[in-house]
Every structure is written in structure tokens, then in C-alpha cells.
């Protein structure tokens, strides 16, 4: 079960996924609680024009910079658009998503390698991750975890009780921008290696699954990280076995996502049991006081 990962590119793919597991576990908890699924999905699409422009301007080196600029720009625009509540969050998110992605497609559609560019953006190239990309991801991971660690309490307060947080003097817009930028950085860190499909899944499914298993925050983040590690390892293994032993071309990104979703489906029945147990316990206490 370890043998395929002694092949260098498989080892690098697993390392990249492990790094992403480390950041996506905690970040997905906030994405879940703040209901930012759509924002995450939007960010994966809106970095696309950044990737294209970055590549056209500076080649492979330019991609990360381009994605970074586009991601942070989207985070700012989305925060500002949804601030006043003039447009509903989801409509403005959809419009920004479609517009930015279209810019990317218009730019890329003039190139000859149009379709393969698009599909590599969707699926990423997890099996061709270079050591340099791993280093980039690691650096971004440190930045992301630091940003999350310093603001975790304030973000939690804002998420649980926006009116209370604002009454205590916290600036809601600033906190929203902070979290949107964190999500944007995760997308930038991950999108080139693992593709949009997998990034969206990594930001949404782990916490949704973990919430079915526990009602506590730290365990939620840990379970999320564990799930990504498990699904990443198994997904790579399955796609390796499928293509080496059976000649079936199974995309690694798809395999990892489908395993994550499988974990979610398997966790669904647990929720009821976990919920019932705690409810009974608390109702006894209610009788007492």
C-alpha cells in the first residue's frame, strides 16, 4: 500500500495533498459556518483569468502572481458588493464568477492549446507537481494558517453573532474581507496542482462531513484534515491501481473528490445518533435546572 508512493511523482502528489489537508481542515470549518461554499466556488473560477494573464505575461513563473492578484481582487470585490446587502450575496457572487471566468475563457480561446489549457485548469496536474510547487504551497500554507490563527477568535465571534461582535467593536467588513482573502489564498495555493474541482471539494466537504460527526470546533477541524489525508491517499492509490493494473484512465482529482463525498454520505446516518445522544443528556439537566 506504500509501494506506489515510492515513485517520486506519486510521493510529491501525496505531499502536496497532505499540505492542503493541513490548511483545508481548519479553513473549511469557517467556510462551512459562514456558508461561504458559493464564495469558494466563485474564487476557484475567478482566479482563472489571473492564471491566464499571469502565464501570458510571465510564463510559468507568472501564474502564481496572476492567481494571487485575481484571487485577492475577487475577495475585495465580493466583500464590497455584499456589504450593503443591496444585491443579495448569491446573485452578486454568481455574476462576478461568470464574468471573471468568461474573461479567462475569452483570453485563452485565442490560443491553440485552448482545450487542454482549460482541462488542466479544471483537473490540475497533481501527478506532475514539482518540488518548487510544493515549496510554494508550503509557504502559502504557513501564511494562511498564521492569518487564520490570529483572527480565529474574532472570526468565530463574527460568525456566531454578527450583531454582538459589531457591538463589541469588531469591524465586520474587515473580518469578512480577512476570511475571503484566506479562502482566496487557499485557492491560489491549491488550484494549479489539484484543479478547481478538487479545491471546491476540499473547502466544502470536509467540514460538512465533520459536522455530522461532532459538535465541537477543534475536533471538526482535525476530522476535516484527517478526511482529506485519507481521501487523498486512497484516491491516489485507487487511480494508480486503476491505470497501472487495469488500464482504466481515472483522474486522481475526481477519485479524491468522490472518496470525500463517499465519506460524507457514510457519515449521514451518524448525525442522528450523535444528535440524539446529546439531546437526551441535556434534557436530563434541564429537568434539574
Amino acid at each position: 500500500m506504500i509501494e506506489p508512493f515510492t515513485v517520486p511523482f506519486m510521493g510529491r502528489a501525496l505531499t502536496e495533498l497532505a499540505l492542503l489537508a493541513l490548511i483545508c481542515g481548519p479553513v473549511s470549518v469557517f467556510v462551512f459556518l459562514r456558508r461561504l461554499s458559493f464564495v469558494s466556488d466563485a474564487l476557484t473560477h475567478t482566479v482563472f483569468p489571473g492564471v491566464v494573464i499571469g502565464f501570458l505575461a510571465g510564463g510559468l513563473e507568472g501564474i502564481v502572481v496572476g492567481a494571487l492578484v485575481a484571487g485577492v481582487l475577487t475577495a475585495v470585490v465580493l466583500t464590497l458588493l455584499t456589504r450593503g446587502g443591496a444585491l443579495s450575496d448569491d446573485a452578486s457572487t454568481a455574476v462576478v464568477l461568470a464574468a471573471m471566468f468568461s474573461i479567462g475563457v475569452v483570453l485563452v480561446s485565442r490560443r491553440k492549446s485552448y482545450t487542454s489549457d482549460l482541462s488542466s485548469f479544471l483537473f490540475g496536474r497533481i501527478l506532475t507537481v514539482t518540488t518548487q510547487q510544493i515549496v510554494e504551497t508550503a509557504v502559502l500554507a504557513v501564511v494562511i494558517l498564521a492569518m487564520l490563527a490570529v483572527a480565529a477568535r474574532a472570526l468565530l465571534f463574527r460568525t456566531f453573532d454578527p450583531a454582538g461582535a459589531s457591538a463589541a467593536g469588531f469591524r465586520i467588513v474587515a473580518l469578512d474581507l480577512w476570511l475571503n482573502i484566506i479562502v482566496a489564498l487557499v485557492v491560489v495555493a491549491a488550484v494549479r496542482a489539484v484543479g478547481t474541482i478538487l479545491v471546491v471539494a476540499l473547502l466544502i466537504v470536509p467540514a460538512a462531513t465533520a459536522r455530522l460527526l461532532t459538535g465541537r470546533l477543534v475536533p471538526m477541524a482535525l476530522i476535516g484534515t484527517g478526511l482529506i489525508l485519507g481521501a487523498g491517499y486512497l484516491g491516489l492509490l485507487v487511480s494508480w491501481t486503476a491505470s497501472v493494473d487495469y488500464g482504466i484512465s481515472l483522474t486522481s482529482a475526481s477519485a479524491v473528490v468522490l472518496l470525500l463525498v463517499l465519506a460524507y454520505v457514510l457519515a449521514l446516518p451518524f448525525r442522528r445518533r450523535h444528535q440524539k445522544a446529546t439531546t437526551t443528556r441535556s434534557s436530563v439537566h434541564e429537568l434539574v435546572g
Binding site: F32, V257, L258
Partner: peptide, 21 residues
Amino acid sequence: GQNSAAATGVVLSAGFALGAG
């Protein structure tokens, strides 16, 4: 404990990954 945003996200990921696969 679940919200429709998360549920929608899970279904989206699953559908896209399945189709792409």
C-alpha cells in the same frame, strides 16, 4: 446542523467530479 449552502456545495462537487471522471 447542515445548511443548504454546504449541501449544495457537496452535491456540486460530487456531480462535477463524477461527470469529469
